[in-house]
């Protein structure tokens, strides 16, 4: 009894109690962290993903968002995407690829300190638009950039 308690305490100190709790199946990562939105990442449609993330899915086109991505991506496994926005008080920037099995690639939650500027690399199964959605002032605004993919990058 005492021994197993010791081992448990040591393990929690070594790896952090959160990791132990996840490992033991007590908690899913989603419930521990600021709620990683599993439903949004599992969604097969863009609207569903946006609804889970932002509570709404209607987007307006905006010329205050720029999506920079290559015209032709030779390797769909690594497509570099930069999103810039001049919209004040942007709360988050979400990257979506409608033609992927799960359209939601990533969502970046900006603090007040962060600029509306994000660069990342995403996977693309095939030729598709890359859509950036910015949430600000209770509205969703979006811009997109078509990318031609010559070699898909999602496996399967």
């Amino acid at each position: 009894m005492t021994n197993s308690r010791r081992t448990f305490l040591k393990a929690s100190m070594a790896t952090g109690s959160i990791a132990v709790a996840i490992g033991a199946g007590l908690l899913t990562p989603g419930s521990v962290l600021a709620a990683w939105p599993k439903n949004a990442f599992d969604a097969k449609k863009m609207d569903e993903a946006l609804k889970v993330l932002n509570g709404m899915s209607n987007t307006e086109d905006s010329n205050k968002i720029t999506v920079e991505a290559p015209d032709i991506a030779e390797n769909g496994a690594v497509v570099s995407v930069t999103v810039k926005t001049s919209i004040p008080n942007a709360e988050n920037i979400t990257l979506l690829v409608p033609e992927n099995a799960s359209p939601l690639a990533a969502s970046y939650i900006l603090s007040k300190q962060a600029d509306g500027f994000i660069t990342g690399r995403i996977k693309m199964r095939k030729t598709s638009d890359v859509i950036a959605v910015v949430k600000a002032g209770g509205k969703l605004m979006s811009a997109k950039k078509p990318v031609k993919v010559t070699l898909g990058g999602c496996g399967g």
Partner: peptide, 17 residues
Amino acid sequence: LTCLWGPGVSKNPFLSF
């Protein structure tokens, strides 16, 4: 900044902000 990522982010992810 907090990033929420799914499997659609490339291997060895690059991040700039």
